[in-house]
C-alpha cells in the first residue's frame, strides 16, 4: 500500500511541477522582461495553468491527412513515457523512491536516449519540411550530447562507486560532488540543456526559423504532451543535477528531506528559465563544434583525472 502512495506521490509531484512550470516560466520571464505576464486568472494568475490545460484538452486534435498517422500519434507518448519512467529511479527523499535501482544512472541515460525517438519520429511522421529539418537537427544534436552526458556523470559514479541514485546521495554526506566534479557538472548542465532542447539550444524548434520545428503539425493534447514533456525534461534534468552534484535530499534536518530536494531542483529550473530569458540561439554547426571540440575533451579529461586520483591517491 505504501508503495502505491509513493508511485502516486512521484507522479503527482512530477506532473504538477511540470504543469506549474507553465505558469512559473511565464511569470519569471515576464519579470525579467519588464512586463507582467499572466496575472488575471485566479490569484496571481495561478489558475492560468488550469485554463491552459483545459484549452489544450478541448482543442481540435488534428492529425494531418498527409502524415504517417500511427507514428504521428505514438511519438508524443514516447517522450512522456521515457521521462516519467526515469522519475521512478529518482530518490525524492530517503525511502521516497519508486524503484531504488542499483543501475539508476544507466536507466536514466538509456531512457533519455529513447526520448530522441519521440522527436525524430514525430518530425518524420509529420511529413512537413520544417518538421523534417527540426527532426534531423534534433537527432544529431541529442545523439551528440548524449555522449558527453553519460561521460560527465561517470566521474560521480566513480567517486560514489555505485550507479544507484540513493547511494550517490548517501555518498555525499561528507560533501557535495559539485566541488570535486565541477567540470562534470558544467558539461552535464550544458548537455542537459541540449537534451531538453531549451533555448539557447532549442535548435530543433528554432521558433524564428522553423516555425516550431519537429512539432509544427501537432495540435491539441498531442502538442500538449510535447509541451509538458519539455517541462518534465527540465524538471528531470534539474532533479538529476540536484541528486548527482548537490547532495539530493541532504540538508539541515529542521525541514523534511523532500523539501531540500525540491528546493534544489527548483533553483536549477529557475536557472533554465533565466538562460532562456537571456541568451540568443547559436547556429546548429556551432553547437556541434562546441560539443565535439570543447565539451567532449573536457568530459574525457575529467574522467581521466578523476580516475587517476581515485587509483593513485
Amino acid at each position: 500500500m505504501n508503495y502505491l502512495w509513493i508511485i502516486l506521490g512521484v507522479i503527482f509531484i512530477a506532473l504538477s511541477i511540470a504543469a506549474g512550470l507553465i505558469w512559473v516560466e511565464r511569470r519569471l520571464l515576464s519579470v525579467w522582461q519588464d512586463r507582467l505576464g499572466p496575472n488575471r486568472v485566479g490569484p496571481f494568475g495561478l489558475a492560468q495553468v488550469i485554463a491552459d490545460t483545459l484549452k489544450l484538452f478541448f482543442k481540435e486534435d488534428w492529425v494531418p491527412p498527409f502524415s504517417d498517422k500511427v507514428v504521428f500519434t505514438i511519438a508524443p507518448g514516447i517522450l512522456m513515457v521515457t521521462i516519467l519512467l526515469t522519475f521512478a529511479v529518482i530518490p525524492f527523499g530517503p525511502e521516497f523512491c519508486v524503484f531504488d535501482s542499483n543501475i539508476g544512472v544507466l536507466f536514466f541515460l538509456g531512457n533519455s536516449s529513447l526520448g530522441v525517438y519521440s522527436i525524430v519520429l514525430g518530425g518524420w511522421a509529420s511529413n512537413n519540411k520544417y518538421s523534417l529539418i527540426g527532426a534531423m537537427r534534433a537527432s544529431a544534436q541529442m545523439l551528440t550530447y548524449e555522449v558527453f552526458m553519460g561521460l560527465s556523470l561517470m566521474g560521480v559514479v566513480m567517486m560514489a562507486d555505485t550507479f544507484s541514485f540513493s547511494e550517490i546521495v548517501e555518498a555525499q554526506r561528507g560533501g557535495w560532488f559539485i566541488l570535486p566534479q565541477f567540470l562534470g557538472f558544467v558539461v552535464f548542465f550544458i548537455a542537459g540543456i541540449a537534451e531538453t532542447h531549451r533555448l539557447p539550444f532549442d535548435i530543433p524548434e528554432a521558433e524564428g526559423e522553423l516555425i516550431a520545428g519537429y512539432h509544427s503539425e501537432y495540435s491539441g493534447m498531442k502538442f500538449g504532451m510535447f509541451f509538458v514533456g519539455e517541462y518534465l525534461g527540465i524538471t528531470l534534468i534539474s532533479a538529476i543535477i540536484a541528486t548527482m552534484f548537490f547532495g539530493g535530499w541532504l540538508g539541515p534536518s529542521f525541514l523534511p528531506p523532500v523539501f531540500w530536494f525540491l528546493l534544489k531542483t527548483f533553483i536549477f529550473i529557475g536557472v533554465f528559465i533565466l538562460l532562456r530569458a537571456s541568451l540568443p540561439r547559436p547556429r546548429y554547426d556551432q553547437l556541434m563544434k562546441l560539443g565535439w571540440k570543447l565539451l567532449f575533451p573536457i568530459a574525457l579529461l575529467n574522467l581521466l583525472v578523476t580516475g587517476a586520483i581515485l587509483i593513485f591517491l
Binding site: L29, D34, G208
Partner: peptide
Amino acid sequence: FAQDLGQLSPVFYTFN
C-alpha cells in the same frame, strides 16, 4: 533582430 537570433527578452526592452 535579437529575437530573430533567438534572444527572447530584448524585444520587450526596446519596445518599452
